[in-house]
Computed example of a mutant assay.
Amino acid sequence: MTAKFIVIEGLEGAGKSTAIAVCQAYLENKQVDFINVREPGGTAMAEELRNIVKQAHQETVTGETELLIMYAARSQLVANVINPALEKGTWVLGDRHDLSSQAYQGGGRGIEQTKLSFLADMVLNGLKPDLTIYLDIDPAVGLARAKGRGELDRIEQEALGFFERTRARYLEIAKTDSSIKTVDANQTMPEVHAAITTVLDNFFAGLN
């Protein structure tokens, strides 16, 4: 079977970590050889870029600077980890990918699609997840959950409107891309996990 690229997406507090754990257990049960990656991050340089973009700074971080850092980190991860893994037959399970930039920097920051498309084309060179599970949550609920985990990073401290715009872009893109499956993350954890399992069941059924 050709290696596949599966990504978990969602706002802060949507439950990505537990969703990834569900996916890990599912793939292990299927005896699939896979690796985990996260964005931004996943390589030594990309992790340094993650720290830069996540931490607070005395100067204003422009939306364009944030976008460029995200794609710089993604470039390192794609070239040095994701593509080599897929080429040797290892599946990749990702915590965020390009859809995050489309939603956060495109929707939340309002950066023009032409700029996003240019960077995506340059960095990804046609790479696209085979399956994206988008965990959709009310931004107010998600932020309350995130605050309950502890101190918020620079992006998590944005106003509610930023996350409402981000969510709107997520949903807009998901409606036009059949590889993106939306799961209602406002449900109870068992219900969310059951929905994720159903998505994975359908995905694997389509591979046969």
Rank of each mutant, 00 (worst) to 15 (best):
Gly63Lys: 12
Gln76Lys: 10
Ala72Gly: 03
Ala73Gly: 06
Ser75Gly: 08
Val92Pro: 07
Tyr71Ala: 05
Asn80Tyr: 09
Leu67Ile: 01
Asn80Asp: 13
Glu59Leu: 14
Tyr71Thr: 04
Val92Trp: 07
Arg74Thr: 00
Thr65Glu: 05
Ala72Thr: 02
Val61Arg: 00
Thr90Ser: 06
Ala73Met: 07
Arg96Ala: 03
Thr62Val: 12
Leu67Glu: 00
Arg50His: 09
Trp91Met: 11
Pro84Trp: 05
Asn83Lys: 15
Gln58Glu: 10
Leu93Lys: 10
Val53Glu: 02
Gly63Trp: 12
Val81Ala: 02
Ile82Lys: 00
Ala56Arg: 06
Thr65Met: 15
Met70Ser: 09
Glu59Pro: 04
Lys88Glu: 04
Ala72Leu: 04
Asp95Ala: 09
Asn51Ala: 12
Ala85Pro: 09
Ser75Pro: 09
Leu93Gly: 01
Ile69Asn: 00
Val81Lys: 09
Glu66Thr: 14
Ile52Asp: 00
Gln55Ile: 15
Glu66Ile: 13
Leu67Trp: 01
Ala56Gln: 06
Lys54Gln: 15
Glu87Gln: 13
Glu87Gly: 03
Glu59Gln: 15
Val81Leu: 10
Thr65Ile: 13
Asn83Asp: 03
Val78Glu: 00
Leu93Trp: 06
Gln76Arg: 08
Met70Arg: 14
Ile52Asn: 00
Leu93Ser: 07
Lys88Tyr: 02
His57Ala: 13
Arg50Val: 11
Val53Cys: 03
Ala85Tyr: 10
Pro84Gln: 00
Ala79Cys: 02
Thr65Ala: 15
Ala85Asn: 01
Leu49Cys: 02
Glu66Val: 14
Val53Tyr: 08
Met70Phe: 15
Gln58Gly: 10
Glu66His: 09
Val81Met: 07
Asn51Gly: 08
Val61Pro: 00
Lys88Arg: 13
Leu49Val: 12
Gly63Ile: 13
Asn51Leu: 14
Ala85Leu: 11
Lys88Asn: 04
Gln58Arg: 11
Ala85Asp: 02
Val53Ser: 06
Ile82His: 01
Val81Trp: 10
Gly63Val: 08
Asn83Met: 11
Gly89Trp: 10
Thr90Val: 13
Ala79Trp: 02
Ala79Phe: 05
Thr60Val: 11
Gly94Pro: 07
Leu77Arg: 03
Asn83Leu: 12
Asn51Cys: 05
Thr62Gly: 02
Glu64Phe: 15
Glu66Pro: 08
Ile52Arg: 05
Gln55Lys: 14
Thr60Pro: 02
Leu93Tyr: 04
Ala85Gly: 12
Ala73Leu: 07
Asn51Ser: 05
Thr62Asn: 03
Ala73Cys: 05
Ser75Val: 09
Asp95Lys: 06
Val53Met: 11
Arg96Ile: 12
Thr60Gln: 12
His57Ile: 12
Gly94Lys: 07
Ile52Gln: 04
Val53Pro: 06
Leu68Cys: 05
Thr60Cys: 05
Asn51Gln: 12
Val78Thr: 02
Val53Lys: 07
Ala79Gly: 03
Glu66Leu: 14
Leu93Asn: 01
Arg74Met: 01
Gly89Ser: 09
Val92Asn: 00
Asp95Ile: 15
Asn83His: 13
Gly63Arg: 08
Ala72Gln: 02
Pro84Val: 06
Leu77Glu: 02
Gln55Pro: 01
Gln76Val: 05
Gln76Ala: 12
Asp95Phe: 13
